[in-house]
Nucleic acid binder design. Sequence first.
DNA 1: AATATAGTTCAAAATGTTTTGAACTATCTC
DNA 2: GAGATAGTTCAAAACATTTTGAACTATATT
Lengths: 95, 95
Amino acid sequence: MTTQGQKSEQMMKVFKALADPIRLTIIQYLNGQDHEVTCGEVDQAIHIGKTAGSYHFKLLQEAGLITARKVAREKYVALDRSTVDRYLVHFWDNL
Amino acid sequence: MTTQGQKSEQMMKVFKALADPIRLTIIQYLNGQDHEVTCGEVDQAIHIGKTAGSYHFKLLQEAGLITARKVAREKYVALDRSTVDRYLVHFWDNL
DNA sequence: AATATAGTTCAAAATGTTTTGAACTATCTC
DNA sequence: GAGATAGTTCAAAACATTTTGAACTATATT
């Protein structure tokens, strides 16, 4: 079972993850794709360096907002829409 | 008209406002009330000082998450559920 | 094997947010 | 009017997040 404390910690991670313009831009970019893309592609598309990118992808991952899959050198990321649905769309049910 | 920049600034304010445990507790408290309450009542209920309270109420107000009405010495606040609906429940439409 | 590429990690600096007490304004009560 | 109450403002301290470059790991290419 998940405790209430764990649930609101996860909720906080989600809101903190969304409370940043770069990460919101990443989410928007991923939302426009219907398949997974590499971190490098996103970094280039939104004009951030790979170090900054790595940092932001880590937070998004920890929040459960993206899925990530490493294939050899490359890391493929995609939006995890179910997390947005759980914490935002169904906000009132989780509060 | 509201520009896209204005909309995402407001969205950021909403997420930043929700990305804090005290403010989330305030939201929860207000969600449990069906009428407006004073800042003092909330401060007492959730055990924070009035200075901290004032700071957090200001951010919640700027995010549009609460309405506030000053009556003489007292300030009555209430949850503005329409903002949650606009930015969270209908997240995908605003992105 | 040497070089290039994708991404991570680290630590320092820069920036942003939150807390706190003291002083303040405005209203209320005696 | 004097003293109490509700809330705000200010500035400093404490704390948290973000940025950056350099060094690193692992895989790919020649």
